[in-house]
Design a binder for these strands. Structure first.
Length: 108
DNA sequence: TTAGTGACGATTA
DNA sequence: CTAATCGCCACTA
């Protein structure tokens, strides 16, 4: 079958997200080189269900909104995980998102 | 092959 | 400031 190189790229970055930190799809996309396609990151995250090694709950949109929480098993599972890491989430939105924001390019 | 979709982002009106 | 539209890349029907 086709190579999942693209997924591996996203997973590699997502797995590098430290505990208690969050990042945005666009940031990961940029780190991958596909900055113009933040959707691809989210789409790849959709396949992350195949691999539980990807903390997709630490990946949110540019506004810090838990846009992908609807794709999790539960309704508030994503928020629960974030709060579990010390991240305050209100109304599906991360508080001080800019403060918890983690740039994947720092690893480059 | 063409058209439609998507866990986004930026820009324009 | 808010709303709406385009662009993106990859995938599916």
């Amino acid at each position: 079958m086709a190579e999942e190189n693209f997924f591996e790229r996203v997973y590699a970055i997502a797995r590098q997200i430290p505990y208690g930190r969050v990042t945005s799809y666009g940031a990961i996309a940029k780190a991958l080189g596909t900055a113009r396609s933040a959707r691809m990151v989210g789409w790849a995250m959709n396949a992350c269900h195949n691999m539980d090694d990807v903390p997709a709950h630490r990946v949110v949109n540019r506004k810090g909104l838990l846009t992908g929480k609807h794709h999790f098993d539960g309704t508030n599972l994503m928020q629960q995980l974030l709060e579990n890491e010390g991240i305050q989430v209100i109304n599906n939105q991360i508080v001080d998102f800019d403060k918890h924001f983690w740039q994947p390019e720092i690893t480059l």
